[in-house]
Computed example of a mutant assay.
Amino acid sequence: MTTSLAFPVPSALGSLDQYIQTANRFPLLTEEQEMALARRLRDEQDLDAARQMVMSHLRLVISVARNYVGYGLPQGDLIQEGNIGLMKAVKRFDPDRGVRLVSFAIHWIKAEIHEYILKNWRQVKIATTKAQRKLFFNLRSMRADSSTLTPGEVSKVAETLGVKPEEVREMETRFSGGDIALELGPEENEEGRVAPIAYLADSRNEPTERLEARKRDRLQSEGLETALEALDERSRTIVRRRWLADDEAATLHELAAEYGVSAERIRQIEAKALQKMKGTLAAYL
Rank of each mutant, 00 (worst) to 15 (best):
Y68C: 07
Y68S: 01
Y68I: 10
V69D: 00
V69M: 08
V69T: 15
G70E: 04
Y71K: 11
G72L: 10
L73F: 02
L73K: 04
P74Y: 00
P74C: 04
Q75P: 00
G76S: 13
D77I: 03
D77Y: 02
L78S: 05
L78E: 04
I79K: 05
I79Q: 03
I79E: 04
Q80G: 13
N83Y: 00
L86E: 03
L86V: 08
L86M: 09
M87F: 00
M87Y: 00
K88Y: 09
K88M: 10
V90K: 04
V90Y: 01
K91R: 13
F93W: 06
D94C: 11
D94W: 01
D94P: 05
D94S: 11
P95Q: 12
G98S: 11
G98N: 08
V99P: 00
S103A: 15
I106H: 04
H107S: 14
I109F: 01
I113S: 02
I113K: 03
E115H: 13
Y116S: 03
I117N: 02
L118S: 03
L118P: 04
N120Q: 11
W121I: 09
W121F: 12
R122E: 03
V124M: 07
T128H: 06
T128F: 01
T129W: 04
Q132S: 13
Q132P: 02
K134M: 08
F136S: 09
F137T: 12
N138H: 15
L139E: 02
L139F: 04
L139P: 08
L139D: 03
R140E: 03
S141A: 13
S141Y: 07
M142E: 08
R143H: 06
R143F: 02
A144Q: 14
A144L: 15
D145S: 15
S147H: 12
L149Y: 08
P151Y: 09
G152L: 08
G152V: 08
G152Q: 12
V154E: 05
S155N: 13
S155F: 03
V157P: 01
A158P: 07
A158M: 08
L161H: 11
V163G: 09
V163F: 01
K164D: 13
P165F: 07
P165A: 14
E167R: 12
V168C: 04
R169M: 11
R174I: 10
F175C: 02
F175P: 05
G177L: 12
G177V: 03
G177M: 12
G177S: 14
G178I: 02
D179E: 13
D179Q: 06
A181T: 09
A181K: 15
L182G: 05
L184N: 09
G185A: 03
G185E: 07
P186H: 05
E188F: 08
